[in-house]
Structure formats: C-alpha cells, structure tokens
Nucleic acid binder design. Sequence first.
DNA 1: TACGCTAATGGTATCGGTACCATTTTTAGA
DNA 2: TCTAAAAATGGTACCGATACCATTAGCGTA
Lengths: 340, 340
Amino acid sequence: MPRPIDERWSTMKEVANLAGVAKITVSRVLRSPELVSKTTREKVESAINKLGYVPEAAAGALSSGRSQIVAANISTLSGSIFLSTINQLSNILSKHGIQLILSNSEYSEEMEFQQLSALIAQRPLGLVLSNAFHNTKRRSMLSRIGCKVIEIWDLPENPIDYAVGFSNFDAGYSMTQFLFKDCCYKKIAFLGTKQGFDRRSEMRFQGYKDFQLKHTSEVRAFDLTASGKGNIHDGTVGLNSILNKWPDTDAIFCSGDVLAIGAVCEARRRGLRVPKDIAISGFGDIEFSNEYGIELTTVKVRGEEIGTRVANIIVGDIEGAFNINKSIDVGYDIVRRSTT
Amino acid sequence: MPRPIDERWSTMKEVANLAGVAKITVSRVLRSPELVSKTTREKVESAINKLGYVPEAAAGALSSGRSQIVAANISTLSGSIFLSTINQLSNILSKHGIQLILSNSEYSEEMEFQQLSALIAQRPLGLVLSNAFHNTKRRSMLSRIGCKVIEIWDLPENPIDYAVGFSNFDAGYSMTQFLFKDCCYKKIAFLGTKQGFDRRSEMRFQGYKDFQLKHTSEVRAFDLTASGKGNIHDGTVGLNSILNKWPDTDAIFCSGDVLAIGAVCEARRRGLRVPKDIAISGFGDIEFSNEYGIELTTVKVRGEEIGTRVANIIVGDIEGAFNINKSIDVGYDIVRRSTT
DNA sequence: TACGCTAATGGTATCGGTACCATTTTTAGA
DNA sequence: TCTAAAAATGGTACCGATACCATTAGCGTA
C-alpha cells in the first residue's frame, strides 16, 4: 500500500486480465503448466513477458503455508570452514527456486533468541545449524519449529531432526592411529581445544585420547580452551609449550589446519626439520595450506558433500535414504603430505 | 493450510484473544510499543510468551508491502574476497531484524535471469551486487526493481542506484606510483588480467598503465585473461614469463594477492631474493598471506567498511550523506611489508 | 444423439498480518 | 466542571497469491 502505484509490480490479476483468463489459470501456468492447454499457456506467458510480471513470494508463502526459503545459521563467515558446504547448498537450492538465508551465530544468549525468532518468522523449509542453539530452551523451540532441522559437520547422539556430518571422535582416533601405525611416530601430542565452546575439537581430542590410552597409556595435550581461538599464533605457542613439557615428542596432531600451520612455521623458525625432527598434522584441509607452501598432512572433510546431502534432504529427493536416527555420515579422508 | 492444525504456529489473533485485546494492539506492541499503555503491553507480552508466538514474516510483508529481506548476489563464496563485507553487512542488518539472502552469480545467462527473478520475488529492501547482472536486459530489469540497488567493490561511472567501493584504477595507479617513487623500482611489470571477465583487475591494469606511460613510457604486462584464474600456479607462470621477456624487471605488481604469493614462491625457488632481486606486491590483503610466512606488500581493501556503508544505506541511517551520483568511495591503503 | 469421462478453466474463501480511519478513554487547561 | 486535545484502542478492508470445489468444454463410445 505505501508504495506509489506506478512503482508497483504487476500482479497476477493484471496478467490474467491481459491474457483474458482467470487469476488461477496464471497460477497454474507458473506452477503446473501441464494442466493448462497450449494455447492458453502461450497467451498467459506472453502477458507475463509483456508486463514483466514476477510473482510475489510473500503472497504465495502466506497462501500456501510454505515458503521457498531455507535458513542457515553458522558462525562467522570470514575464513569459515563451512563455506564449501554453504556454497554447494546454495547452488543446489537455487536450482529448485529456493533461497538461502544466512545468519551469524556469534551472538549472546539474548541475541541468539532474537536470531532464532527472526529465522522462524520466515517459516523456512529447512533450518541448517552448524553449532548454535543447543541449550535446552532453544532445543524446545527447535523441536516445535515444524520444519526440517539439520545439524551439520557433526553427528550428535540425538539429532534434533537430521544430522549430516562425520564423527569428530573417529577422525581424531584415525589421525592418531595413522601417525602411530602408518607413520611410526610413537610420542604423539595433541594441540587444540579440549573443552568449552568448540565441541568438535573436543571430540577429536577424545578420539586422540582413546587411541593413546589403548596403545601408549600416555596423553600429551596442550589445551587452548583458555588462551586461544585457534589462530596461527596459538599454533606457535602450542608447539613451544608441548616441546617444553615433553621434549621427546615426535608428532603433533593439531585440531585445526591453521594451528598446524602456526606450529610448522614455529618449528622451522626454531631450526627443526619437519617432519624429520617433528611431524605435524592438521584438520580440515583448508584451501590455502597446500598452496602457500606448506604441504600439510591433514584430515580432509567432505564439505561439499555435506552441502549436497543437506540440499537433498530439503528438496526431498532421497527421502528415506538415511538410517533410523536420520544421521548421514559422509566420512573423511586422511591426506598424507610432506609434514609427516 | 496444508500444515496440520496442531503443528501450526499461533497467530496474532490467538494472542489477542488470550490477552483480551484486538489484533491490531498486538501488532502495535510488537512494532511500536510506545503507542500502547504499560498495562496492555504487559498483558500482550505475557500472552506472546505463553503461546510462544512468532509473527509470520510473509503475512507482514504482504500486508505492509515491504519485506525485511536484503538480497546479495556475489560470485562463489569459497575463498571469496567479499566475505568480510558480507559478514559485516549481515551483522548490522540482523540487529535491525533484517535477513540476508545470499545467491551465487556463477551462472549462465539464462540461469542469471531466473536468479534475478527469484530475488525480485522476495521484494527485498535492497539488492547488493558484486558484479553480476550488468548486461543491458538485466539493467533495465534492475532499474524498475523498486528497491535500493547497491553495487559494491567498485565505483562504476553510472551506478544503477548506489555504489560503495573504491577506484580500482586509482588503486592500480597508486601502487605503481608507490613502487616507483617510495620504493624506487624503475622497471615495474604488471601481472594479472587485462580484460574480460574481471573488470576490476582490468581497471587496476589501466591505472598501472596510466602511471607507466606518464613516467616511463613502458608497459610490461603479462596478461592472464586467456590462461588463468589468478591462482598460485598462475603466479609462478607469470613471474617466469615476465622475467623471460624483460630480464631487468625489478618489481612486479600482481593484480591479486594469491598471484603475488605464487610469484614470491617461484622467485624464491629460482634462488632470487625478494625484494632485493625482485620486488613483488599484491592486491587485496587476504587474511592468510601474512600469517603464512609471506609478508606481502599489498593494497588493503576496506571490506568491512563497505559492509557497514551498505547496511547504512539500506537502513537509511545516513540518508543524504553521499554525493550526487550516490557513490561512496571508501578508499584503500597501501601496506608496505617485506616483499618490496 | 445421448452419455459419461477426462481435460481445462473459473469462483470464492482464505492465509496472517498492516493501513487507515473511527472511536473511546484519559489528561490537561481554563 | 467542562471542553479540547492527546493517548489508547478497535473495526474493517485489503495485500497477492493458493486451496478447494464447482463448472464448462471436449471427445470417444454405445
């Protein structure tokens, strides 16, 4: 109403008038053209082109009770490990005429509530979560949300609805096993976050710990929970602390690639040969590590595949192709490069 | 309608009934609480909490004629230079209850049309474009779109509506001038894309060329339009080609940081000292170049500020604070590090 | 030719909010 | 105490689509 009449987009009614048909027929041409005769369809399509008609999503959503929107809530975008997933998701959804709404999860508890409400207000077809909204109050809100809730990059015990990811515990265990058995390092340390906000890193640590306790009965871990956020500098600090405390360490499993790169740089600075004097592995296989001259051994996560699977759940192409608890395990790859 | 009644969210009417007021009063409590008396407000708020009411955005948008949505169309997300801008934009908008829809622009012409239509269907408050939709047909579609169209990361001559960015020509000129005057390199080459799909890189080249023609009458450029996409490998190829053709080159201005890093790595591999034997500068100040052990001289783009300005245009906080052609120049910084 | 079935099209109510204007209640000033 | 203005609240039409059901047209078959 507030918009001046000459700026308004044409409506379905106007298209119908121009084509000499009823509104509902225009709707059919757009949504189920096979129900409309060829001649009528052509009249309507010509009218649509003449008026430059673009349907209004809000009206359709209100009337049909279903939006063409998927909401994704991930932590900060810049440098995010979720980008390949989001990118792939967005690509597939857009082919189905579905739009992706992106929101940040780097908020306080109160803001988080507002965020979630704002997303619910859109009545999305699906809600993709990387890690937010997991306290009890939010979970109850999520459970009655009435759309597909998909947690990604992890496989929680009790997914709210769906989960697409991999076991961070297994990944931690596998990498440790790989260092121990395939690479023959026997004094392996863990560098990363053991607890707190990064649940995934903690699970990787648990995997490391499980392997170590079974095979060496020794756990060497430098915990960054208090100090750091997993940036380059934390990697240098971590390497020094570990070598200080356990000088005979021959391999360090870092819970993130960026940490690992910091550790490699610091090791080189100290005159240590990587991997001869100290082997270092990472997690994530971020785009740049290889290209920037550090050929890092790491756990490659199948980010794109996660995006594909999520999209398929939402568009329903493969309904039923997952197991009972609705978790999809996309797995991971251990990639050996020159730092181990 | 299709959703079963017991899964339905409560409506404003239900809240109103529970609170014993009219629907419109509930609407006021949510949108302009200062118009409602304290007692009424509290009754309504309590009813909202009791029912877990979340308004339906589609209904509000339809009724008021304005959505709470902003659409951004950028090229592929992964590794994108636009992330800091998008992140900042998203942060500010969400504080105003506005959601950000993200779409990719890596499509064919036909797909592009569908993409644009899908965005228009949302009747967004603003449309943020990094580089897409610039052919004539699309421009005419955009000119009648009826919302704020904002082009970012560049300052086109005739912005469709608004533009927030910087002059890539000036940036190219400035960096060349910086290398020539401040760093005293006299044989400067350009490595990058001169023409074609990356308009911005081309503008930087024009800036380089303009300076060179004024001061040395010599243009040394290796054009990657045909061969590459600006990755590390292109940087190595480019460095070799340039030194092959113009062996006395003492500085290379690369049109992107990744190219520059490739060039630095290749120079080092060839046993050249950087910057003593060959100086290298980049463009963009991407997050990792510094951290990965290459302290690259580069042009730092104020990506976050662009996001802030775009958000301000959309929420209208600084209406009128830009010049006649509605272009905002956020400038750039030349950052000297150890590669020049 | 009449009948019945399918294909094609239309009428009308409705989704859940907001705009606009009307009405009632409260407050302030004389 | 009365009146006018301001504050608070309500009624109703409408935004632009879709759902549901009704109706008409087209066609083959008996």
